[in-house]
Amino acid sequence: MAPNKGYIRQAWLVLALAACFGGALAGVQASLSGRIAENRLSDTMSQVPALVSGAVRGEPDKSFGELTVYRALDASGRQVGWVLSARGQGFADVVQLLIGLDAEARTITGLYVLDQKETPGLGARIAETAWRGQFVGQSTAKPLEVVKSAPAAKGRIQAVTGATISSESVTGIVNAAVAHFRQVLAAAGEKQANG
């Protein structure tokens, strides 16, 4: 009997500490979780003006199923474009992108790399503004190609020197996401037209 009583008496400290810390953590959760959720969202939302010209904010659109889509709205609330969130395997790890499209999803208006873990100085250059700028103004009618030298025509992206795989991964993710989105958009448009 004595050892049992001893253990219970000794456990009171652990229980008391657990209760104190539990309370402290609950307080931290209550006071900080709002800020943290805001931070997470603003990662994406703060890029919307740069991705679609004329847009000031984005609104999630849940009607696209598994695709993460945001409507890009201007100051008066009119939709001026779309922002897609896409991800795929890069060279080293997963790459997360935000793709800006115009209202009819016919032209790419912007590209932003949310997260990448590519090789610094090589694959990581896909996040640079100059390289991403190649996507702006490209048509979405055909998949974009990656070339190693300066592109002679539209529809071609020049790869980062020494980082062909990273460049091809990003272009592949963009092509897949845009094609899928256009498909779903077209199907939804047909359904609307047919009543």
Partner: peptide, 21 residues
Amino acid sequence: LVFTLTIAAFVTIADRLLAAY
């Protein structure tokens, strides 16, 4: 046990503070 509990609680607080600010 007590050390681990204390450290884990403070690390959670530190992590949340970093994520917030």
